[in-house]
Amino acid sequence: MVFPATSCQFAISSRLGIFCPLAYGESTTSNPFCSKIVGMDSTGSPKRPNLLNHLLLPLNVIEDQFGRGVVLVGQVIIIWFKAIACMLTGRIDWREAFRQCYLIGNQSFIIVSLTALFVGFAMSLQISRELVAFGGDTAIGGVVSLALVREMGPITAGVMLAGRVGSAIAAELTTMMITEQIDALKVMRVDPIEFLVVPRYIAGLLMMPVLSIYAMTVGLVASIWISMIAANLPPATFLDSVKQTILDRDFGVHFTKAIINATLVIMFSCAVGLNTRGGAEDVGLATTRAIVWVMTSIFIFNYVVTSLTYAPR
């Protein structure tokens, strides 16, 4: 049976339920959306494009992206529930979890240090400059620490972990899918969630708060240093301001954000990795997809937590 390229493309778009009678000839390389929009007339030839079809193209792409996003979020929720079920029933490979702690935590310290250091430098430089102009030097420590504890600490650690660990997990699991290693696990009756996802999740839950607090501390030290140089502010004055401004609740929120970020990084990376098929090119695409979703969701959930805890009532 012959499956010409155009009919395969038709099948793909039909399966997604998004087919509309658009046509751009048989080319599949010049137009990245071509596989979604090729249709055929009654003779089997590609349909000719028209103005309406051109106008509908962006809607078609949005529909496809939205549909794939909904599927991915569903996969993330399913994997998360399964991982929680494994953890609650004690099905945890602690040896692998500690190995992942090393890979996720220890190996991220240098990159998190560097990032947090420069975030602290830039923030305190900006804030010192403005507050000194208004005679508010003594508030520098408070303002900087508020930003670091409530927002920048968790976000810096989350984003760095997404880039360093999320991409690695997505690439590793996608490669395992493509090379049938996941199928081999299933044939050996080893649950891929228990063997691959749970140790990474536990490592993320343990190491993300540590990295997050570490990023916050490095940022604060950098800020103290810059405040001394840029605003002649003694460290003691800076720290006094920090003590008066930061509440216990801020650390609770910081910890909550770190836990949520760990969940987002690990679950999205694993869900993308475990649901990708194809070849070498798909490893790169899966990695990009995981990173985009993890970073976007980190910023969205950061806002949600902030609005639930700090919004004026």
Binding site: M176, T179, E180, Q181, D183, A184, L185, V187
Partner: peptide, 13 residues
Amino acid sequence: EVGLVFQGSALLN
């Protein structure tokens, strides 16, 4: 119990 020898070996690297 079913054993499967995969085409690409599929060993965990």
